[in-house]
Design a protein around this nucleic acid. Structure first.
Lengths: 351, 351
DNA sequence: GCAAAGACCCAAAACGTTTTTGGATGGCGC
DNA sequence: GCGCCATCCAAAAACGTTTTGGGTCTTTGC
């Protein structure tokens, strides 16, 4: 029967105990452990051994207080977001964490219920100095959060743009997405293409709309305002939009949806109206959620390399923390993945 | 042209500045702001005014250092988890945050790549005292993380059980789920019901298996080991399982799947084999992911009230933090939601 | 009128690090 | 022998709170 490794000391060892045990001063322990150069190799080893022996773990709070730095990056996620399948941000977090931890930073995720709460959260985090940098999404054309942060010179990067774009961001070119979607549908023979937009308060929604309109123009199609509908984030949002489109006589033959959630509920709506999605009406979604591939008809959508996006985001924020003053603004391209829902225009005679 | 509100002081105000401005001592400011009783109402108001005026925000680090408390609860999520649609934990976070913030606690989410990383993360969080309590899922029958935490008396609650169950947890009764699923399928006339299990290292998988077996017994069906397959977390896991089942001649007519991801990929596998899911082979999934309702045939599964679960989890952890020594162990029931995939046994003559 | 109790408040200590400042030691050139 | 530099380390000063252990004055009870 073997005895287990001797327990550590009953009381948590501080830097003082380590210093005493190693026979050096407190300051030497600190410098040795933090990799300063002006400490003898032998001394450093001695200190490391003592620290190991005593299972020394520096107090995060104390270091934070003294250095005025947290080694933590905060990612803020909006609550409404989480209500829906949004592997979007999960995927990003994955890559982000990878990039950050490689540089010794911790990633912390905080949640906020709504826009106001987001602002509060940002204030709390920044004012109480609980983080070194901030990342958040869902930017608006004029965004108070960004004004507030810029005013204070706090490091941050957003996912999405604003009108001014004076800050670092990473974003998908949503204009291009809109253009490509419309072109695809137009090429399939559709002439009445509706746009089921995500809420217009977000910058990317507006970009998507611009793309949609530009796509129409380029395809030589007229722009009918009745075919543009703003959807909000509810389970049935697409259903309502579709109902509206068909009861007011707008009668589109194709739908370009601002996100997959909208597209999916639009499918439900179509069925309820006795129409077969992907047959009577073509659909294109937007963010290639896992649902997209599994639903019938499988939803044509725009893929995004979330892992890569997260890693790039990490690099951006690290650059910012490294004191690099350059504001980096990056774009990622969403590639259209064709599935079943983008069907050609039917010969005529729609019910 | 209106001038904006006067800017605050250039240098961040500390408690000393507030004390000076209010004409009281530093300790009085602290006590006034922290709601101690032995401070005059007038003084308290004076202090509050001064603090407001100077936009005083106590340093989190300093308070943390002195009080030895973080007012933060950490939720650890395993990375592999995030790779799949797992609104499961998102839903929980929602309710959890609600419960915690109501008591002035912050919720922080950290990620870990794998089991080893989880252990490391726990160690870091606990040893560096970055959090007051811990929540994590994916427990195993014997779970080192739990041993480690119990040894140190650190407050935590898990989502899921262990063999010893000496700790606080919240869990679904997975046995019951297994039993109900089998009963349902047996009632539909199925006699060869396969179990596509989640990885057996997790306690809930074993419970599910127990339920499955008990269900078989209760239904008077024989237990055929060839019908039990352990699936791992890959995109095609169910597909592989199904292929195995049908190439080795196990030929089930119904599948009970440990989670919806498995069920979905099993559907793919069935189609690839020329079988129609929900017609040639019945399926029942397990966690009612958003996918379940949208896929064709819609997947019969077990619903979970994640919001409620999060709130209860919050209450449990708060109780623990409040010094209540009672170990609370709660169960939530998953209600079967019937959709299309659990079809009756076909008359005979399967290809 | 006096002691005891109560209500408020303050100065100083403590929390556990990191950083600064400056001193000691030893080697080296002259 | 002396000055100079490099290297290493000790002591002490932060960092910004909370808590401790009294204080002083006013009120109360007798």
């Amino acid at each position: 029967m073997t005895t287990r490794v001797a327990d550590g000391p009953a009381v948590k060892a501080g830097i003082r105990q380590v210093a005493e045990s190693a026979g050096v001063s407190v300051s030497t322990v600190s410098r040795a452990l933090n990799g300063y150069t002006d400490v003898n190799a032998a001394t450093r080893a001695k200190v490391a051994a003592a620290a190991e022996e005593l299972r020394y773990r520096p107090s995060y709070a104390a270091a934070m207080l003294r250095r005025n730095q947290t080694d933590t990056v905060t990612f803020m996620v909006s609550k409404p977001w989480t209500k829906f399948v949004d592997p979007f941000f999960l995927g990003i977090l994955d890559g982000l964490e990878l990039a950050l931890s490689a540089q010794g930073y911790d990633l912390q995720v905080v949640m906020a219920r709504d826009y106001e709460a987001e602002h509060d959260v940002i204030r709390r985090v920044v004012e109480r100095q609980r983080s070194d940098a901030l990342i958040f999404a869902r930017t608006r054309p004029v965004d108070e959060r960004i004004d507030w942060l810029e005013e204070r010179g706090f490091p941050f990067v957003t996912i999405g743009q604003t009108n001014r774009n004076s800050h670092g961001f990473i974003d998908r070119d949503q204009r291009r997405v809109g253009i490509e979607a419309v072109h695809r549908l137009a090429a399939l023979g559709h002439r009445r293409i509706a746009f089921l937009s995500t809420p217009c308060r977000y910058t990317y929604s507006l970009h998507g709309r611009e793309g949609y309109r530009q796509g129409l123009t380029e395809a030589g199609l007229p722009h009918d305002p009745a075919l543009e509908i703003e959807c909000f984030l509810s389970r049935r949002t697409g259903e309502e939009a579709v109902t509206q489109l068909f009861t007011t006589g707008a009668n589109p033959t194709a739908l370009f949806c601002g996100n997959d959630m909208i597209a999916l509920s639009a499918m439900e709506g179509l069925k309820r109206l006795g129409l077969t999605p992907g047959q009577d009406v073509a659909l294109i979604g937007c963010d290639d959620s896992p649902l997209a591939a599994h639903v019938r008809p499988a939803l044509t959508s725009f893929r995004l390399d979330l892992d890569a996006m997260g890693i790039r985001l990490g690099r951006m924020i690290l650059g910012r923390l490294g004191g690099d003053p350059a504001v980096t603004q990056e774009f990622v391209h969403g590639e259209m993945v064709l599935r079943e829902s983008d069907s050609p225009m039917r010969p005529k005679g729609l019910a």
